[in-house]
């Protein structure tokens, strides 16, 4: 069974299988296993994804090669890559791309930073961590639609809680319209998005922290290594891979984020919070230009893929891939 040890999917140290030497059913079983079994195991998942992701994605690619406006659904001329060319050339697209990258960068940085701090806290012996551990789960429990509405109530320019708080602390003289300033509007959305997603990051990072072998720390404790050094030398290198996983997952999430933009700013003021996902939504469902909208969603997919590959390359370079 040399094959078993060759691929990256093989378990580390997977030795020759003694059971395989035994007769009858196991032999047949093992032959079948090596040939078809893995595919049979994947079949249900693959079927589901083919029907519900691959087929729609294929169809939407087909649509993206056509001029298709749902106001004129009977006219469906093939225009090749024109939608893509038009998309890439339009100022709206470039503005949205820049907003998307800014939003994604800020959101991912905040989520990972905060998630890491929280995970370190929850993994320490600090008093009250049990309470904090429960609190971390609160934002996770909020459905996105409630999250969006919630932050709208908080940042409302006339009755919002945030304004009330600042006013009572004497930090502002009168209620401000926070979402009117393009920079602040984006930051508010980042804060709201991060709030909803920090728990997931915290859970993954906390899980990774808990898997660090204790003896690594015990040695450091005996040596009286400074805390910062322990963090830098032992904890962070161990966390490198889980952090990367969180970064990839959160990047995917941020590039697809939509609800908050829909509820909080509607892409404004001006086009200062118009992301690619929002542009896709508007193009497909407000302007009913399904061809162009499909092209936009392909651009988002491509972008996500590209970023995932960049991260992955970074990972390979460090030689940390299992």
């Amino acid at each position: 069974m040399a094959l078993l040890q060759a691929g990256p999917a093989a378990a580390p140290g997977g030795a020759a299988d003694p059971a395989l030497a035994r007769g009858g059913g196991w032999r047949r079983w093992s032959r079948w296993k090596s040939a078809l079994f893995p595919y049979a195991l994947n079949a249900p998942a693959v079927l589901a994804l083919l029907a519900l992701v691959a087929y729609p994605v294929g169809l939407s690619f087909w649509i993206s090669l056509h001029k298709m406006n749902l106001r004129r659904p009977k006219s469906f001329p093939f225009i090749g890559l024109d939608n893509y060319a038009n998309a890439l050339a339009s100022p709206e697209f470039r503005a949205a791309l820049s907003v998307t990258l800014k939003f994604t960068g800020l959101a991912v940085a905040l989520i990972v930073g905060l998630g890491l701090c929280l995970a370190l806290l929850l993994n320490s012996e600090v008093k009250g961590r049990g309470i904090l551990r429960a609190l971390v789960l609160v934002p996770w429990a909020i459905p996105p639609i409630v999250n969006a509405t919630l932050w709208q109530l908080i940042f409302d320019s006339h009755v919002g809680a945030f304004n009330g708080l600042l006013l009572q602390f004497g930090l502002i003289e009168s209620y401000k319209a926070w979402l009117v300033d393009p920079a602040i509007a984006l930051v508010v959305i980042v804060l709201a998005h991060a709030w909803n997603h920090v728990p997931m990051a915290t859970i993954i990072l906390l899980a990774a922290l808990q898997a660090i072998p204790r003896d690594l720390y015990e040695a450091a404790l005996i040596d009286r290594t400074p805390r910062a050094r322990v963090l830098w030398r032992i904890t962070l290198p161990w966390l490198w891979r889980p952090i990367l996983v969180v970064v990839i997952l959160q990047t995917m999430g941020a590039l697809r984020a939509f609800d908050l933009f829909y509820v909080l700013t509607g892409g404004g003021p001006g086009n200062s919070t118009t992301t690619l996902a929002w542009l896709t939504y508007q193009t497909s469902f407000v302007y009913l230009d399904l061809g162009m909208g499909s092209a936009y969603s392909y651009v988002i997919m491509g972008l996500t893929l590209f970023m995932a590959l960049v991260y992955y390359r970074g990972l390979y370079k460090r030689g940390d891939v299992a």
Partner: peptide, 8 residues
């Protein structure tokens, strides 16, 4: 004019 107008 309330600048919040642009988000209302």
């Amino acid at each position: 004019l309330d600048p919040a107008s642009v988000q209302m």
